[in-house]
Design a binder for these strands. Structure first.
Lengths: 231, 231
DNA sequence: TTCCGCTAAATTGCTAACAATAGAACAGCG
DNA sequence: CGCTGTTCTATTGTTAGCAATTTAGCGGAA
């Protein structure tokens, strides 16, 4: 009975993870423990463990004596996530080309077909997940699990960032970008694949409204350092 | 009283973290909860939280109903960690050069001086920590905190890997490598700095005894798939 | 009216006793 | 003497109740 404990935590973790990534739980949402206990018919410890795990991934923010909230990445953090993704994924795509097997090629083609089947309609839930799956697939082919786990976290956070900063009006169409990337990959052209990946990631970032480059936080303590308060 | 809870967990976390990184806790060591409760005069929940946090950094492995152990990275994982570090740190060093301020230059020089002051003697505890500090300093200068946190984890795991696979006899002397790196950095020569970083990381890896390239794990289930047991 | 302080409800954090598990010591059998 | 199966102990996992904290609502005073 107790041996299923880790599975239980993982079940809760996955459910919340999915809900956040698929944007059914918007950034800032409060996650009350007793609430989750009811929803998942689990005990509080398991819920707390799951929340703690999610906070490691930066999908959830835990405040002392206040509770857990869906994270709200700042524009600065958003830019960092994209910068990190560019670094990791550009390197990874080269390894992917080197390690690509016949099976992997088929998996790539199959994925692209799946994306086409869904149509260009950015009907959020599936579209978002599928888009991330493509990047995770490439990560798996590249073969570095350590780097892959780090990228997983970045991909998940990207969903949060898009939920927060997506420009509503625009027609989000990163579809042909994946096509282009897959084409370069399958043809084995490293330079083209790397360039395509960089272009793709920059394009996603450009479609967001991340505000001015420097959102310098004003530190009141610094501002008033050495200033005598009047009376 | 309760508001110090996170601090308490962090205190335990840091103590164990330091002990692992400075190789006072060898890989494979069992970390018994009640033991740690005594040592840190803390309660079991805090100890458990700290262990869970450490397991997320891959410094500790938690086995169901068995307890927590200091991680023992496999040669395969070790190679992945170094590959990941090359990817991240090569990219980071370029950003570091771009963002380097006068203050940062002084910090780099000061660090190198500190390394020299310690002498070429690899008297483990301080030497290991100082060596990691240099890489963390460059990470801070580069300015991407997201990437920096990921690198922190890799640097910590590197200590574990060295503890496991260091070739005993060898005179570990990565000293002039940092010198060379700092020189390239301060002169602003990106290409040289990147090359120097790559060389440095490859050199560390080469000094280890990681065994054959492929340590394929034999999966008994796969071996005996579809085989009928006799009688 | 507006601001401040007080009280009460909801929620998180903590504790300590209890249950379940794994590993070791041990006994019985071949 | 070695092997198998069983009890026993140390350790981890779980649970429920209690304590502490935050927040919101209310009421009174300026």
């Amino acid at each position: 009975m107790a041996s299923h404990a880790v599975r239980e935590v993982q079940r809760i973790f996955n459910s919340i993870y999915d809900a956040i990534v698929e944007q059914r739980l918007p950034p800032g949402t409060r996650l009350t423990e007793l609430n989750l206990v009811e929803v998942f018919a689990a005990n509080r410890n398991h819920v707390r463990s799951a929340l703690r795990d999610l906070s490691h991934l930066k999908l959830v923010r835990i405040e002392m004596n206040r509770g857990a909230f869906v994270e709200e990445p700042t524009p600065q953090q958003a830019r960092e996530v994209f910068a990190a993704r560019r670094v990791i994924e550009k390197a990874m795509i080269e390894n992917a080309i080197d390690n690509m097997s016949a099976k992997d090629r088929k998996a790539i083609s199959a994925h692209i077909a799946q994306e086409h089947a869904l149509g260009h309609d950015p009907a959020k839930p599936e579209f978002i997940r599928l888009s991330g799956d493509f990047h995770r697939l490439l990560s798996r082919i590249a073969g570095n699990q350590t780097l892959g786990e780090m990228l997983d976290s970045l991909i998940a956070r990207t969903s949060l960032i898009i939920a927060l900063y997506e420009v509503q009006s625009g027609i989000q169409c990163s579809h042909d970008e994946h096509d282009h990337l897959a084409e370069a990959l399958l043809s084995g052209d490293k330079a083209a694949a790397v360039a395509s990946m960089e272009h793709h990631l920059l394009a996603i970032e450009k479609r967001l409204r991340l505000g001015p480059q420097k959102t310098e936080e004003v530190d009141l303590f610094e501002v008033f350092a050495g200033v005598e308060t009047v009376k």
